[in-house]
Amino acid sequence: MSGATELSLERTIELADMVAYAGATWDWHRLHYDSAWLSERGLPAPVVDGQLFGALLAEMVLDWAGPEATLTALSFRFKNLVYAGETVRCAGRVTSVDGDLTTLDCTVEVVGEGARVAVAPARAEVRRP
């Protein structure tokens, strides 16, 4: 539909951000920081924890929906790994409004060199009183 509400959030994820996220989630998996472990497995760089994209999508939707809103549902599927230092762009579009419930379709894409889809499809549902 024309004039659909579009949301976006762009973030460069440095290794320091990944270390902070690993600490904050008590997740010390070597996949997210250990270069020797990664090269043994043919991975070019530390891999961003996919669930971080769930946090970014929640942040994007709640920033837009306002302080009185609550997120009621969020789902997402992973398409490609994202590596330390890459920039992702989260995007969302309102697809339905039913009373106080708003539904959005979302994606997360890597932008710049090596552009690709990181997360799709994704869907969020937010209650706005």
Partner: peptide, 11 residues
Amino acid sequence: YFALATGDDNP
């Protein structure tokens, strides 16, 4: 800690 780690500025 989680808010800081994810760049979340929600007060």
